[in-house]
């Protein structure tokens, strides 16, 4: 084959490919145009649903008739638009409509499909409607991490003992999104999940203990105080620092002295967590123990000590003003902190 023939063949191949792509773009564009033309009719569907929501289940027959004119995909998308905005009786009506139009049965069926993307979409549809099924609970242990994460996000609405156990199991999931979703769900579930978390701490490994402490630090349940005090002498600095954060959040009367005790820790991270905690609790008796940290070699610790003393109010201010006159580091940070007094505390903690 000559060079010219080769070039010609290549050109023909490229021209054919361009034509094929253009046809695809054209067909897709036509499909989109059809969707745009359908939009006014979909507005009718939206109005019918809203009417049914305001009129109750008895009024939903008309909506079912109107929705019957559209494909399930369109009905699902319209219902998903409305689902996050409704609650209580209206949600019951919406679920009823979803059942009668086949949206929810189809999604329930989708939970058992082989393709992970179908299971993921189905659980998202069911979660948007606030529906609870046995299959959804099982999806907390699904083989796809996307599905597990979504199941964890759904679990907030159904915090049974079984679901809580599933969420705690997800705290050791290899996928970060699953761990995040589980932690977030446990925080949102709140006090109802505390007991399960406390029980789980007995058997959890170090990583899971830390993740439970992160949840506890966001929850602020006083029941975690004793556990955090126990963990404040844990072998790993990260766990001890998190224990300090939990102590600060619980606001327990025992938390302040415990945090002061942590100021003697060998790890800078732990000391920093304790100093932050003392500021959060406004535990002014701890000021005297924080003051020597103004001269600590670590800049971060010096800064945090200065800010903490400032946050303690008048007792802290006295300590700042008397900060070790011979110690340049301490004096410099004390001056910096005192300069912040001219502006509001909110601004000072920028």
């Amino acid at each position: 084959m000559s060079t010219l023939e080769l070039l010609s063949v290549m050109l023909i191949v490229i021209a054919t490919a361009i034509t094929a792509v253009l046809v695809t773009v054209g067909v897709s564009s036509l499909a989109r145009a059809h969707r745009v033309r359908l939009e006014p009719s979909l507005d009718d569907a939206r109005h019918a649903i809203v009417k049914a929501l305001s009129g109750g289940i008895a009024e939903s027959n008309d909506a079912v008739a109107v929705l019957g004119r559209f494909s399930r995909r369109h009905v699902t998308s319209v219902m998903l638009e409305l689902a996050p905005s409704v609650n209580g009786t209206s949600r019951s009506v919406l679920v009823n409509l979803g059942d009668r139009t086949g949206v929810l049965p189809s999604a329930r069926g989708g939970l058992r499909r082989r393709r992970w993307s179908t299971r993921l979409y189905s659980i998202r549809v069911l979660a948007a409607f606030g529906v609870e099924t046995e299959e959804m609970r099982r999806l907390l242990a699904d083989r796809s991490s996307h599905v597990r994460a979504q199941a964890a996000a759904w679990a907030v609405v159904a915090p049974s003992a079984e679901v809580l156990a599933g969420l705690i199991d997800l705290l050791s999931d290899p996928d970060g999104l699953c761990r995040f979703a589980a932690q977030d769900a446990l925080v949102r579930i709140g006090l109802a999940g505390s007991e399960a978390l406390i029980t789980a701490l007995d058997t959890a490994d170090d990583d899971v203990v830390r993740r439970i402490l992160e949840v506890a630090a966001a929850m602020g349940d006083e029941r975690f105080c004793d556990i955090a005090m126990g963990l404040s002498v844990h072998s790993t600095p990260e766990t001890r620092a998190l224990a300090g954060a939990v102590l600060a959040r619980t606001g327990s009367p025992n938390a302040g002295p415990a945090l002061v005790g942590m100021l003697n820790d060998s790890s800078e991270d732990v000391i920093r967590a304790a100093v932050v905690g003392i500021a959060k609790l406004s535990y002014w008796p701890g000021g005297a123990a924080v003051e020597p940290l103004l001269g600590h070699p670590s800049w971060e610790l010096r800064k945090q000590a200065g800010l903490t003393l400032l946050a303690l109010g008048a007792p802290g201010e006295i300590l700042l003003r008397s900060a070790a006159p011979g110690d340049d580091l301490a004096a410099e940070m004390a001056v910096r902190a005192l300069q912040l007094q001219s502006i509001s505390p909110q601004e000072a903690f920028a």
């Binding site: 549809v125 979660a127 948007a128």
Partner: peptide, 10 residues
């Protein structure tokens, strides 16, 4: 992955 995802929730 993102089909019908509600970022607000997660």
């Amino acid at each position: 992955e993102v089909r019908a995802e509600r970022y607000r929730e997660i």
